[in-house]
Design a protein around this nucleic acid. Structure first.
Lengths: 167, 167
DNA sequence: TGATATTTAGGAACCATTCCTATCGAGGAA
DNA sequence: TTCCTCGATAGGAATGGTTCCTAAATATCA
């Protein structure tokens, strides 16, 4: 979903976040994609508009937005952090083939804490559900065996063209 | 649960894992604790018996045991990996106060994939459920302000990454 | 027992993220 | 509008868990 600059300004002000061109670009890029980009993905995307921006600024900004509740950070295993401008309660389907992260809305999953929390001497304030498996595209494709666990390079979507482990 | 050397040898053989004193010590130490130790925790523990062991060996061994299915690796946000000799299907309660990870056995949670997998064009091969909140000890104690604040206003929606402790 | 493939230990490398700091600029005050 | 001030930015260095490389040691099997 593409946000207007005014909408971004409004949300920032609402949460007491100072507005800068870099921040608007970072948050705008994040809100524009359905993927769950990494900090580096966002860095590369924003660099098209702000060639001098530093990775540091991206990290710092994402931290600020996270603390302000405008952004969710999604950590998946050993992979680097991924970010999400969708702050509504939802869960994730994680493809072991292409490592795509799809959103999953499910009211039943949202209600899990009440059942579990009442049963144990543990006060539940939040929870996270992840399903691992193979997305539609990867199901059609040949099943990658150990590759999934190794987390090798993967064909990525729109925002990201990434290489980890470049040896 | 303390395992005899023979029991360890049996399990290793069963899974085709070569037996060495270092490996037995690592796996034994992991099976002996209900905590979910990091590689470094295990390194320090095993060093008492094998003073010359290297961190590398611990990492390598944990990798071998993981691939063999004798050990589960539990990645919690950006924290370092934690390991678990309990390979039965179970989930985790993560205390935001003391960072302790408790095991949670729950047949209902185990059955989640069938419902979700049937509903979507996504083949579920595994899943993970984490509950975040406060353990018994931390509930009695004063609610840890700093940690909670670091988590932001809505822990259930955007649990912050806990960075490693300072030097 | 000997052959050989695996494992070990040590050190170097990797790399996402954080830290440090001089300069810049957003936004409130006047 | 103009100034001021404090937070933001950019660049570079540092951090630290993890992985890679390699020679030497050793478990396993014929």
């Amino acid at each position: 979903m593409t946000l207007s600059l005014d909408e971004i300004r409004r949300r920032f002000r609402e949460r007491g976040v100072r507005m800068t061109p870099q921040r608007a670009a970072i948050y705008g890029a994040l809100a524009r994609t359905a993927n769950h980009p990494t900090a580096e993905d966002l860095y590369r995307e924003v660099k098209k508009i702000h060639p001098m921006i530093s990775q540091n600024t991206v990290y710092y900004t994402l931290g600020v937005l996270r603390e302000a509740g405008l952004v969710r950070e999604v950590n998946y295993w050993h992979d680097r952090s991924r970010f999400d401008a969708n702050i509504d309660l939802h869960h994730h389907l994680i493809c072991l083939g292409c490592r795509k992260i799809e959103d999953l809305m499910d009211a039943t999953l949202d209600r899990l804490p009440m059942r579990v929390g009442g049963r144990l001497d543990f006060e539940v304030t939040g929870h996270r559900v992840e399903f691992h498996g193979y997305c539609a595209a990867c199901r059609r494709r040949k099943r990658p065996g150990a590759a999934a666990r190794r987390m090798g390079p993967h064909p990525s979507q729109h925002l990201s063209v990434q290489r980890r482990r470049k040896r």
